[in-house]
Design a protein around this nucleic acid. Structure first.
Length: 812
RNA sequence: GCGAGAGUGGUGGAAUGGUAGACACGCUAGAUUUAGGAUCUAGUGCCCUCGGGCGUGCGGGUUCAAGUCCCGCCUCUCGCACCA
């Protein structure tokens, strides 16, 4: 170890030296001391793209600082890291350059391990997890089997979303925007009819709406709530003579008497059967044209509604009326029952349709001051029921239940809840993922691979050129197998799993990455679970964060864990933008390379600058010049212990203990609340003060103050603080020291600046003792020349004294 | 259309209803330096007759006092969107 006496700070050398020392001394090996309270801190695991970019730094280093802070405050902290290593980029890179995805991925991981070390984070690398390792994905398969056992995994043939560029199906969550694009590559998705495996996340829809067990940002809770999209209403059967009942879902059973027509989705299985002979040609033409339409056109809200009369009539169960049945593409097969009762008077869409096709618009909920005339537009609001037989005069809010009860009594309806949430489609037609552990036998159908045969290994030498078919289909050695039940010839499932499967439970695997009797060691689980503090981007609000909650609830029902929520607290950091305030991208040429700044200013400067830019949840543009300010601050801080010039300036050395106590309070509260920017601002301000009093301060007080300062700096600038600590001759390591405390009594000032206002306008500032009485304060204020000139000759109508702060005279 | 969030100096941003603009970038002047860079010192919201006046998207309101609370607008960002 080289000497730590240099006067100037050479970040590269110093940081490297401490990183080596930390590794040698296993400083960041997870503390298992059972006498300490546990703190499981987790930052979202990165995809091994090859380079740690500045976005990784922005996500990870504040998270690291927070974990370090908790450690110094006396918690035993688990702060693991791993790699989300399955997924398309590896496969695409392989296709482009002819390297095997495994090789590409592992060489990227190797590279990133070095970069992570350079970051100076306290990750415990012994717990590292790589999700493409059979040791890991074996448990993906195990979970799949458990899901199958519980009836939570099922296979279904249906029209699914297909990305033509990525050549795979997607989960509903991975289709984004009004124009339905692939979340990964932005290509508009198309529908394809395929047999796919799904997880029954909808079974947990109701429980997933309950956020009482988590302290999460409102924003995430709202996003998930909207995504799940709970609607309360009723299911009502409308009889179609000659066919049978067709069920509809409605949130407005109170408007049932106003249902003057009926609509089914063009793809609804009933369409073919109910269409009358003379309407057949028209209906067929319409259904075909709807089928040809792209998803984008079809869901365009501004398009005029179209539809076709089927010739059939449905019976309104409320009044026995026969109402015409239309097929129209504004009704979607995928939501509710794919059929609706149309109430034009009280639904905008039905109103538009009825106008166009000349269907009766019957008011059944009277708007306030209604004159009995036909409505000029749909009235979706509240009111009294009319034209509704025995329900007339009832407020419609009560009518919802009353009508539903009535239908239930007649056996033609019931209260019902519908969710927008769809089951999670997990099949992917790509190579670089977890093989789905199922075998198809001509005799026994879809048979789960026996647990003891796991893992079903991904073959190494597969052909992974994208053809639109699963690459594993081209590997007879893989897919030809025997039926586990009868031993007869059978074939394996050739689809792989969605990579969101991997990240749904990785936080559990970190506890015991090599445990081979289960997904994690339950003893370790007792010690650490659940995650106390999770940090990551908001973009995962309805994908990863919903899936991992679902997984945890299933794990609870499997008896693996005893809690309901995977992560108690969540903090969403913002996004770091390019210098032009645009999203960083290679095509824009605004990508910031962190290495450049680490080389020039050191990793502490980069860490601190990213935390100083602004509130962490806000993100913001990078500023290459701004980092200079942080580098300057760190150099100045270093000069506190390493000699160098102390600056003059006005500052009172007697204030040293008080200012230190205040700083401790401020930084503690700020780090507690993730306000890294203001914590750093306070440390900068304090540094400027310390430099100003350096020459005059008493030796002992100076040392105490400096010690506290270095401890406060430690979570934010770990290398720097370690160096300063060593230069002060204090024992290694600063990072295992106790967080400083402070004396509340000392925090309070003896002297205050009394602000004097006249009619709310600032007129003077006067030094006064902190405990000055209201009378004395007013008297003192009145002595001020500046105040008197504004008060003289006018009547003082009122005077206010805010203790320790200000006096306000109200004059006439 | 519905829902959520945000509008403060040239810039990033600070402000338990009580001194608006902390801290930093940038800029100006000075010191040091052969010069540049670095460093240090001072200044830096706008207007001004140097008394002060005006200032937190706009318009009202509550209050002794409003960036902060209430009402109504405008703009921007994000999410959802024919969801029955």
């Amino acid at each position: 170890m080289s000497e730590t006496t240099s006067k100037t700070y050479d970040p590269t050398a110093v940081e490297h030296r401490w990183q080596e020392r930390w590794a040698e001394s296993a400083l960041y090996k997870t503390d298992e001391d059972p006498s300490k309270p546990k703190h499981y801190a987790l930052t979202m695991l990165p995809y091994p793209s090859g380079d740690l970019h500045v976005g990784h730094w922005y996500a990870m280093t504040p998270s690291d600082s927070r974990a370090r802070f908790m450690r110094m405050r006396g918690y035993r902290v688990l702060f693991p890291i791993g790699f989300d290593a399955f997924g398309l980029p590896a496969e695409n890179a392989a296709i482009r350059r002819g390297i095997h995805p495994r090789k590409w991925t592992y060489s990227n991981i190797e590279n990133m391990r070095g970069q992570l070390k350079q970051m100076g984070a306290m990750f415990d690398l012994d717990t590292e997890v790589v999700t493409c390792d059979p040791e890991y994905y074996r448990w993906n398969q195990w979970f799949f089997l458990k899901f199958m056992e519980k009836g939570l995994a099922y296979r279904k043939e249906a029209p699914v979303d297909w990305c033509p560029k990525d050549n795979t199906t997607l989960a509903r969550e991975q289709v984004v925007g009004p124009d339905r694009r692939c979340e990964r590559c932005g290509t508009p998705v198309v529908k394809k009819n395929l047999a796919q495996w799904l997880f029954k996340i909808t079974d947990y829809a109701e429980e997933l709406l309950d956020f009482s067990g988590v302290e999460w940002p409102e924003r995430v809770k709202t996003l998930q709530t909207n995504w799940i999209g709970r609607s309360e209403g009723a299911e009502i059967a409308f009889d179609v003579p000659g066919y049978g009942p067709i069920e509809v879902f409605t949130t407005r059973p109170d408007t049932l008497f106003g249902a003057t027509f009926f609509v089914v989705a063009p793809e609804h299985p009933a369409v073919e059967k109910i269409t009358t002979l003379e309407r057949e040609a028209d209906v067929r033409a319409y259904v075909e044209s709807a089928g040809r339409m792209t998803e984008i056109d079809r869901t365009d809200v501004t398009r005029e509604k179209t539809g076709v009369f089927t010739g059939a009539y449905a019976t309104n169960p409320a009044n026995g009326e026969a109402i015409p049945v239309y097929a129209a593409d504004y009704v979607l097969l995928g939501y509710g029952t794919g059929a609706i009762m149309a109430v034009p008077a009280h639904d905008e869409r039905d109103f538009e349709f009825a106008k166009k096709y000349g269907i009766e618009i019957r008011t059944v909920i009277a708007p306030p001051d209604w004159d009995g005339e036909p409505l000029a537009e749909a009235y979706p609001g509240e009111g009294l029921m009319v034209n509704s037989d025995g329900f007339d005069g009832m407020p419609n809010t009560e009518g919802k239940k009353a009508v539903t009860d009535d239908l239930e009594a007649k056996g033609v309806g019931r209260a019902a809840v519908t969710y927008r949430l769809r089951d999670w489609l997990i099949s992917r037609q790509r190579y670089w993922g977890t093989p789905i552990p199922v075998i198809y036998c001509p005799e026994h159908g879809a048979v789960p691979v026996p647990e003891e045969d796991l893992p079903v290994r991904l073959p190494e030498d597969a052909e992974f050129m994208p053809t639109g078919e699963s690459p594993l289909k081209l590997d007879p050695e893989f897919y030809n197998t025997e039926c586990p039940v009868c031993g007869g010839p059978a074939t394996r499932e050739t689809d792989t799993m969605d990579t969101f499967m991997d990240s749904s439970w990785y936080q559990y695997r970190y506890l015991s990455p090599h445990y081979d009797e289960g997904p994690f060691d339950p003893e370790e689980g007792e010690k650490w679970l659940p995650v106390d503090q999770y940090t990551g981007g908001i973009e995962h609000a309805v994908m990863h964060l919903l899936y991992t909650r679902f997984f945890t609830k299933v794990m609870r029902d499997l008896g693996l864990v005893s809690f309901d929520e995977p992560m108690t607290r969540l903090f969403n950091q913002g996004i770091i933008l390019g210098e032009d305030a645009e999203k960083m991208s290679k095509s824009r040429g605004n990508v910031v390379n962190p290495q450049e700044f680490v080389d020039r200013y050191g990793s502490d400067a980069l860490r601190c600058f990213l935390m100083f830019i602004g509130p962490w949840d806000q993100g913001g543009p990078w500023d290459s010049r701004g980092i200079e300010g942080i580098a300057r601050f760190l150099r100045r801080a270093h000069s506190l212990v390493a000699g160098g010039d102390a600056s003059g300036g006005e500052a009172d050395p007697k204030e040293l203990p008080r200012r230190t106590a205040r700083l401790v309070k401020k930084v503690t509260e700020d780090l507690e609340a993730f306000r890294f920017n203001t914590a750093l601002a306070s440390l900068m301000e304090h540094t400027n003060y310390l430099l100003a009093v350096k020459k005059e301060a008493g030796e002992e007080e100076w040392r105490d103050a400096l010690r506290a300062f270095v401890l406060l700096l430690a979570p934010l600038a770990p290398h720097h603080a370690e160096e300063m600590w060593a230069l002060m001759g204090l024992p290694y390591s600063v990072h295992v020291q106790e967080w400083p405390g402070y004396d509340e009594g000392l925090v309070r000032a003896e002297e205050i600046t009394l602000v004097v206002q006249v009619n709310g306008k600032l007129r003077d500032r006067i030094d006064a003792p902190v405990d000055i009485s209201a009378e004395d304060a007013k008297e003192l204020a009145m002595k001020s020349e500046k105040v008197r000139s504004h008060v003289e000759g006018r009547e003082i109508r009122k005077s206010i004294y805010v203790p320790g702060r200000l006096v306000n005279f109200v004059v006439g």
